[in-house]
Amino acid sequence: MSAVSADVSIVGHPVHNQVHVEKRYRRLKVLLRRPTALAGGIGVVLIIAVAILAPLISPYNPTASNFSDLFSSPFSTGHLLGTDQLGRDTLSRLVYGARSTLEVGVLATIVGTIVAVPVGIISGYYRGFVDSIIMRITDVILAFPFLVIAVGLAAIFGPSLQNAILALGIAQIPSVIRISRGETLGLREQEFIQAAIASGASDFSVIFRYLLPNMMSPLVVQASIAIPGAILGSALLSFLGVGVQPPTPAWGSMLATAQTYIYQDYWLAVLPGIAILVTTLSFNFFGDGLRDALDPSLS
């Protein structure tokens, strides 16, 4: 060991594994120093915790109706946030609603990203004819209002959670394709890609070992910004009745039902509204902070 350390001091380039760790740590610090990013981060963690721990947190079964206790106002006995037109506990429904809403938002983003990233890389890497075809298809999807896709899917396959995820995922594809294509265009001119090809790497290995890992941070940022969009979208779809189907609680459909009673029992609309607002805002703040923290010009 002493011989090794002697070598290190002679050459003068000691390997700093700690440096790498510290660098990551520093980025985390940058992320958490911003009050908005910190608040967003806490919000995201809380919402995810609520969604996971839903059965433990919710005081009642979210689908169990109780006709002797309709429209009870918030802070009334036994129901912290009151009950709805069927006597279901609003708090329990909000807690379970976090589940379906997050599920749609996150899965749609995952589906969109998994489909779009390889397509974008192929488009940027091979250029030429393939690129033009893919970009034109992207333009077509972009020109299609996603609501039309969602309602169309619901009309053909019936409204369901899966179709909502599919529609929201498709809506994300164009922007992710463009981001990964743009990153690829920048990376493919870098020498290490050429060096990889010169040392005999196949296209497959160039794409998965050289291009993909080096575009992770913009993709992560894109995803963290896309998730709140998808959450909002999923609320919209269930508001329109083409998303999550009753009796499964979802924030959008709670909002839709509450419309009828808005003049008498406004909190039925306000509470899911606040839930949507807080969730979207948390993810947005967190995404913005993440983008700043991963900005290479920072270090």
Binding site: E191, F192, Q194, A195, I197, A198, G200, Y210, N214
Partner: peptide, 17 residues
Amino acid sequence: RGKEIAMVFQEPMTSLN
């Protein structure tokens, strides 16, 4: 490429992944 004929590039700073 890589097996029989290998190449070392000009820019050591950017030639590694």
